[in-house]
Amino acid sequence: MRRFGFLAVLIVLAALVPSVASAAPRDVCGPAAPGFARCYAKVDSRHALRATGYGPADLRSAYRLPDIGGAGETIAIVDAGDAPTAEADLAVYRQTYGLPPCTTANGCFRKVNQQGDPGPLPPVQGSWPVETALDLDMASAACSQCKLLLVEGDDASFEALGVSVDTAVRLGATIVSNSYGATESRQSADFAAHYRHPGVAIVASSGDSGFTAPSFPAVYSSVIAVGGTSLSKADNTRGWTESVWKGASSGCSAWVAKPAWQKDPNCPGRTVADVSAVADPATGPAVYETTIATGWIVVGGTSASAPFVAGVIALAGHHDQYPDASRLYAQAGQLNDVVSGDNIQYEECGGDYLCTGLPGYDGPTGNGTPNGLAAF
C-alpha cells in the first residue's frame, strides 16, 4: 500500500516538479530549522517529466572510469528518514542500465536505522526519499560492484545524522557519503567528531547556494568537500566539457582553521571545495524514485556529485588514505581542471578563484573532476 494517496502525491509533485515551462531547478528539501540539515538535491523542471538525464555509461565516459572495480568496498549513504521504496527503486535503476543486482538477498544492499538495526525504521521526512534515490543511483553509477549501506537517521537533525555516520563506520563502511548540510556557525564544532574516522573516507556535498559561507559537514578538515560542475558532451578529445555550476557552493571558513595541505592564498581558514563532479540539474543524472515522485526524474545539486565521488574513491580502492582531502591536493595534476564559469549568486568576489573556475585550484570545483583513477 502506498504511503501517500493519489491526491497527496500530486500535491507533493506540484511543489517538487513544477511545469516544464519553468526553467529554474527546485530544491527537493525546504529550509531547515536550526540544528537540522537540508538535503542538497535539486530537481530539474525542464527534464523532470522526461528520462533524459545521464546514465552510468555517460558518466563513466565523461570521467574515464572503468566498468568494474570496488568489489571489496562498502559505500554508506546517510540520509534522514525512511525511503520505503529505496531497494525496489534501486533495482529498476540498475536493471535499466545493465548494472548487476544489488539487493538485500544477495548481500549487496542493506538498510538500517541510525542504531544499525533493520527496524523499526524512522518515518519519511518530507521529500528526502528523492535524495536517497539520487545518492544510491549515483554511487551505483560510479561503482556498480560496491556494496551499499543505507543508514536512515531518525530525522534531519545533525545529532541523528552524526550518529548515523558513526553507525555506518561501525557496520563496516569504507566510504561514507553525506549529501546535506547547513551554513557553518559556532555550533558546527559540536558535530565535528562524527565526521572524523581515520581509515574511512568521509565525503560531503559543498552545497547549492553559490559563493557564500561554507556548509558543514563539508567544511570540516576531516571531510572531502565535493563541489559541482555543468557537464556537456563536446566535439573535443575528451568528448565532454565542464564548467563551474552556478549553484555549487564555495567559501572561506570563519570557524575551521586552514589545513596544512591547503595552500590557496586568499582564505585564512578552510576553503571549500576539494574536488567536484557533475551537479548542474540541467545536465544531471537520471534517477528513479517512487515514494515521492512517479518514476524517472532528472536530479542534480552537489547531492549528485558527492555520492559519485564516493564511488570513484571506492573504485580506486584507497579509502584508508583519506583522513582528509590531502591526497587530492598531492595528485591535483591528475584531475580534469575546470577553468570556466563562476558561482556568483548573492556575493561578488571580483573574479577571484574563490568563486571562479580558473587554472589550478578554485573554490567551486576544488582541484578538478575525476580523470580516471590516477588521482584517487
Results as ranks from 00 to 15, higher is better:
Y54P: 02
Y54F: 15
D58S: 13
L59M: 13
L59T: 02
R60L: 06
R60V: 04
R60D: 01
R60P: 02
R60I: 01
S61H: 05
S61A: 15
A62C: 04
A62G: 03
A62R: 03
A62W: 00
A62E: 01
Y63E: 01
Y63V: 01
R64P: 00
R64Q: 12
R64W: 07
L65A: 00
P66K: 06
P66V: 09
P66C: 10
D67P: 00
I68H: 15
I68K: 11
G69M: 03
G69K: 00
G69I: 02
G69F: 06
A71C: 07
G72A: 09
E73H: 02
E73S: 11
T74I: 14
T74Y: 05
I75V: 15
I75L: 14
A76H: 08
V78I: 15
V78L: 06
V78C: 08
V78H: 03
D79N: 09
D79R: 02
G81C: 11
G81T: 11
T85F: 05
T85Y: 05
T85E: 13
A86W: 04
E87N: 09
E87A: 15
E87F: 10
A88G: 06
D89I: 05
D89W: 07
D89G: 10
L90A: 05
L90R: 02
V92G: 00
Y93V: 10
Y93E: 03
R94W: 07
R94E: 03
R94A: 10
Q95H: 11
Q95M: 05
Q95S: 15
Q95F: 08
Q95R: 15
T96L: 00
T96F: 10
T96D: 02
Y97C: 06
G98R: 01
G98T: 07
L99C: 07
L99D: 04
L99R: 03
L99H: 05
P100H: 05
P101F: 09
P101W: 04
P101Y: 08
T103E: 08
T103C: 05
T103A: 12
T103K: 03
T104N: 00
T104I: 13
A105R: 12
N106R: 08
N106Q: 04
N106E: 09
G107F: 06
C108D: 04
C108M: 13
C108W: 09
C108P: 08
F109S: 04
R110G: 03
K111D: 01
K111R: 15
K111A: 15
K111L: 13
K111P: 02
K111F: 05
V112T: 14
Q114N: 11
Q115E: 13
Q115D: 14
Q115I: 10
Q115G: 13
G116D: 08
G116I: 14
G116P: 04
D117V: 08
D117A: 15
D117P: 00
G119R: 14
P120N: 10
P120A: 11
L121A: 10
L121F: 07
P122S: 02
P122Q: 08
P123Q: 14
V124Q: 12
V124C: 04
Q125W: 11
G126R: 09
